[in-house]
């Protein structure tokens, strides 16, 4: 089951805090699909990798936003 999260309106540190919280609420093996701005990538990706989650897909949209799919560790 894939959950959706849009953090395009959030600023650091809310970006990675919201993603971290959404990952915590997922069951192991669940997937979170996150829409974010490019300037949030560093903090969000760093925190996901530090928590051991795996980004399985990434896409840059034409409007400049980024969509990533994260598999819960």
């Amino acid at each position: 089951m894939t959950q959706e999260l849009d953090i395009t309106g959030d600023a650091c540190p809310l970006t990675h805090v919201k993603v971290g919280r959404a990952m915590d609420l997922l069951a192991a093996g669940g997937t979170l699909r996150v829409t974010l701005r490019a300037d949030a990538l560093k903090a969000v990706m760093s925190s996901l990798k530090a928590a051991g989650h795996r980004v399985t897909a990434a896409e840059r949209r034409d409007d400049g936003l980024v969509v990533i799919e994260v598999l819960r560790a």
């Binding site: 490019a38 990538l41 560093k42 990706m45 897909a57 990434a58 840059r60 980024v66 990533i68």
Partner: peptide
């Protein structure tokens, strides 16, 4: 490398 482009976006 999957050429996802996140490096370029970041």
């Amino acid at each position: 490398c999957t050429y996802c482009g996140l490096c370029a976006a970041a």
